[in-house]
Design a binder for these strands. Structure first.
Length: 383
DNA sequence: TCGGCAAGCCAC
DNA sequence: AAACGTGGCTTGCCGA
């Protein structure tokens, strides 16, 4: 399956490379950002070029996307080439080399204490970054299949960090929205822009969604502008508006920063410390970076605590229910299991319950933790 | 030839 | 310079 895809990607990369040579008008290694930048902004003199910190022309996806929209042919071809090359080298070529001779399966390594927030990390190979966003990428995900007579079950927490934000910051409107199962991004947009949720334009909701994610990451006008492709001033106005409508979140962020500065760490809801020794550094850039990381750490770290509790309880819970599901993977807010066909029906509610009840009895959250679980032959269809 | 950095990009 | 959080992998490139 994957080797067939490798061949497909190789062929397409080759064809694209030929077109790229023609458009560039000279030999160009499409994998060399340096060469590409010199051609686009030097030789062709295209507008809008920016430099990286080392003085090279930036040729990231956003830059090339902008140039493509202005009608230039080469940037689009480069982006297409990069996509198939990435999928081939990182996934379809690499994954088969990790198949274990005894088990005939790929086994990842999890680092349990490797991130500042308490998340796991996965390596050799990293199975926490298997593609899902594009159709081409999903072909790779479809290669992850259950054994004969089995299904893969994927169970993930829905918007867990946003729920934890509502809970920790104590935002009544958001907490209520989650309890009532409302569309939280549409609701945010409605609150901010005074647009009814019903019949809301997609673009309005998209912007509110970006703001919600930005808040989780310790928002800055620069980052939001970058994400949305708008001016910094406009992004700043959005943030101002957001905080006017949800002053509790601004207070939460300020309190988190003050606590971190005083103590050098922040706490997850379960009381685990995440350390930020540079939080009071006189370098304003470094300090701001640590402030955003500290704000994010309470949410990301609490989510990491919750899924860890679920994982610890999962095996005994399955055993008690006389179920033989095997827990295979953790992907931050998702657990993947291999389950005999005949046990799928009984396994789903056990998995959902262990995950959604994981904070208990240490914590009783007001906001429910919704879990979506599905079974299918391959990982993509289970998602 | 090897190691490390930079750029870029995949995921949550 | 970098500029919205957490990771890992690959390629190109440069210097030892």
């Amino acid at each position: 399956m994957l080797s067939r895809l490798s061949g497909e990607f190789a062929q397409r990369a080759g064809a694209l490379e030929a077109e790229i040579q023609t458009l560039a008008g000279e030999p160009l290694n499409p994998g060399s950002p340096k060469q590409l930048g010199d051609i686009l902004f030097g030789k062709f003199g295209l507008p809008g070029g920016t430099k990286t910190k080392t003085g090279q022309w930036s040729t990231g996806a956003r830059v090339l996307d902008d140039l493509a929209e202005q009608g230039h042919a080469l940037p689009r071809k480069i982006l297409d080439w990069r996509q198939v090359s990435k999928l081939k080298s990182t996934y379809t070529d690499a994954l088969p080399s990790y198949v274990n001779a005894q088990t005939h399966r790929v086994h990842t390594s999890y680092a349990l204490a490797a991130t500042p927030t308490g998340r796991l990390s996965s390596s050799e190979p990293n199975l926490q970054n298997i593609p899902i966003r594009t159709e081409e990428g999903r072909k790779i995900r479809r290669a992850f299949i259950a054994a004969d007579g089995h299904k893969l079950v994927s169970a993930d927490y829905s918007q867990i960090e946003l729920r934890l934000l509502a809970e920790i910051a104590g935002i009544e409107a958001l907490k209520k929205a989650f309890r009532e199962g409302l569309d939280i991004h549409a609701m945010t947009a409605s609150e901010m822009f005074g647009v009814p949720v019903k019949g809301m334009p997609g673009e309005i909701r998209r912007r509110a969604k970006a703001i919600n994610f930005g808040i989780i990451y310790g928002i800055s006008a620069f980052g939001l502008a970058n994400q949305l492709g708008i001016e910094r001033e406009e992004a700043g106005a959005y943030i101002k508006k957001y905080f006017e409508r949800f002053p509790g979140i601004r207070d939460y962020m300020e309190e988190t920063k003050a606590f971190a500065k005083k103590n050098g760490y922040v706490l997850t809801l379960f009381g685990r410390k995440c350390h930020y020794p540079d939080i009071a550094n006189p370098n304003p850039t470094l300090r701001a970076f640590n402030e955003r990381a500290a704000i994010n750490a309470r949410l990301q770290g609490t989510a990491a605590d919750i899924i860890r509790r679920a994982m610890v309880r999962m095996e005994p819970a399955l055993a008690k229910a006389k179920l033989s599901a095997q827990m295979l993977l953790q992907v931050h807010d998702e657990l993947v299991f291999e389950v005999p066909d005949s046990e799928v029906e009984k396994t789903l509610p056990v998995v959902e319950k262990v995950m959604s009840q994981a904070p208990l009895p240490a914590l009783s959250l007001y906001v429910p933790l919704a879990v979506e679980a599905r079974a299918a032959q391959n990982w993509d269809d289970a998602h």
